[in-house]
Design a protein around this nucleic acid. Structure first.
Lengths: 358, 358
DNA sequence: ATGAAAGCGCTAACAT
DNA sequence: ATGTTAGCGCTTTCAT
């Protein structure tokens, strides 16, 4: 009602409780050496005045801010939502505030690294999902606080991530083991530097192919803007118009996989009978669509990141280059199957090296 | 490298630049009355020392924190992700920090309202998507800062929301206009108090039916836990086993609509030929699935909320009970169609009042 | 166990 | 245009 009402201070509480301000401070911070009677009086007074201590005044003295800063490219994704929904409450439980820097474009990214607004105003910074340049990493090193890299790994810095390379490799092997030889890789074109995992997954895909002696073919690697129906359709078009089209597509994300499947079904190409599709993430939609995919757990990632951050904040001697690698799991569902028998040759056993041609 | 390095202070900068600390303060805050030469020297010194001012020390003096607190039930949803991805950068542009309170369960909710950790540590609070009790609202009134309610409306308090009632009403009318009379409403069982819109949408649905003279039927209102495949299947089962099953289902969210469609198609019930399905949200998946739905824009909501918050912070005389209502739009796509001709009576024109029975 | 006093790093009067 | 000074609301010695 009265917008200009001043917040009560510790002095107000002290006065009301008939004690010194130091005693109020001690009481409210739970210091042991306060007699029960005094403690009760102080707590009562604080309650009556609806008193809350200013973190800012405290942090001025202690040098700790009680804040963890989080740098994210966006919040509008399955991964970020899940990771932060697990991280947030854990921070709250540790009585830490979470301040969020949402940096969706290059301009704001530049501004962030120029000013480093978190500097001096947080006890640690968690950087999510960025593909940082050497300069940016170096800049963060000067921040004067622990920086935890999440969903990416940076040499010699604390990092929490899933092994995207291994996950993608396992995924591709699954397709190879089913008999596929023409396997496409579909990924989204993120603005440069905004996606770490995408690149890693491509590496894993290539590794599995090489391992199996299947030559890499750039025509099988297609790209589309994120969440763009038309882009997906075009990518599908590119694959379907190859001389030797793929019998399987490994999509870097479930979302993209879903879009690909819809696009394929539009032109009556059955999944998985004609083309197998495999995703990455195992988000909710994967179960709905019965989509084969590679599972990762952003929830675990958020938790591990929270634990690591708290440890680095509280223990100056903690290992500052620890990497925590989380596992991935191939989840075979209904969108992957062996490739169709080669065209024109019914029942041809053995040699499963792509559709025969005239 | 040296974790214990002290941050430089304004005094350090002042000394290095050979000016007083006030001048440093003035320079860095962009106060006009600083001569260009001095300004240059100070900026140089600040850069050399990698100096950043402490917001905390400043806010101690100014009484402003430069922080907007955000209370959210979760970040793991399309709506929250989109809304905060729009809100976050705008706050950044206004040089405001965003601190996030993620309160996913009742325990943490209770704890939040008990301690009100935002108190004294933010200039405004934005509350998202909660269905608050009178007591909780009253508690927030005592917070001593503007509280903006987003995606919900609270009498006499600044609020930003879409008109869920009207949206749901329009949606239901669309189905009625197509000829449907047996229209189900499907909603998710959120933990009590964690969803405002769900309730409102039910109201809109009921309003449209009443308006059209169609009697309400509790059997047509089904419920399922969020994101629960089994729950959805069960809800579908309940509807399909009615004496007079619905010819259309209005789902309170796209996500639920999608799940319903998959469940229906599993048992070969064609959508929309046999049953129409209509969602609410118009999130990305709606376009993919060609889902008819009611569009709302969390992006706009985030923007409006940001603007309102900044206004209330900066202008003490601003209207503190302003409601901003955003529009909804019915987006007819491929999952709604007229109901099938009554069973057993081919080509029966006119009277479209549900399937005929023996 | 409690109180007095100093000071954290800034901003905002007030001087000049 | 710049410097001086007095706090902002806490925590933390240091006394008692």
């Amino acid at each position: 009602m009265s917008p200009a009402q001043r917040h009560p201070t510790m002095n107000d509480v002290a006065e009301r409780a008939g004690v010194s301000q130091s005693t109020v401070s001690r009481t409210l911070r739970g210091v042991a050496s306060v007699s029960p009677e005094v403690r009760a009086r102080v707590e009562q007074a604080a309650r009556e005045l609806n008193f809350a201590a200013s973190r800012y005044a405290a942090s001025l003295v202690t040098g700790k801010t009680g804040v963890v800063a989080v740098l994210v490219p966006t919040l509008d994704s399955w991964f970020m939502g899940a990771a932060l929904s697990s991280l947030g409450p854990l921070m709250r439980d540790a009585d830490m505030e979470l301040t969020m820097y949402v940096v969706p474009d290059l301009d704001r990214r530049t501004a962030f690294f120029e000013r480093l607004p978190a500097r001096r105003n947080a006890d640690a910074l968690m950087v999510f999902c960025f593909d940082l340049t050497k300069e940016e990493t170096a800049r963060l090193d000067e921040l004067g606080m622990p920086v935890i890299y999440v969903s990416q790994h940076v040499e010699g810095r604390p990092s929490v991530y899933v092994d995207d390379v291994a996950g993608a490799c396992k995924a591709t092997r699954h397709l190879i083991n089913l008999g596929h030889r023409r396997i496409a890789f579909a990924h989204t074109t993120n603005a440069r530097g905004f996606s770490f995992s995408s690149r890693e997954r491509l590496l894993g895909y290539q590794q599995a192919l090489t391992e199996a002696g299947i030559p890499l073919d750039d025509d099988l690697v297609v790209t589309t803007p994120p969440r763009d129906k038309r882009g997906t359709t075009q990518a599908v078009g590119n694959l379907l118009s190859l001389r030797e089209p793929p019998t399987a597509i490994f999509a870097e994300q479930d979302e993209l996989a879903a879009s690909l499947i819809l696009s394929l079904r539009t032109v009556q190409i059955d999944v998985p009978q004609r083309i197998s599709v495999l995703g990455f993430d195992d988000q909710l939609m994967a179960e709905w669509l019965d989509l084969s995919t590679v599972a990762q757990s952003p929830t675990d990632m958020g938790r591990k990141a929270a634990e690591l951050a708290l440890q680095l904040i509280n223990d100056p001697d903690a290992d500052r280059s620890r990497h925590i690698v989380l596992p991935t799991h191939v989840i075979p569902r209904g969108t992957t199957a062996p490739p169709p028998a080669p065209q024109g040759e019914q029942d041809t056993g053995g040699q499963a090296s792509g559709p025969a041609r005239p």
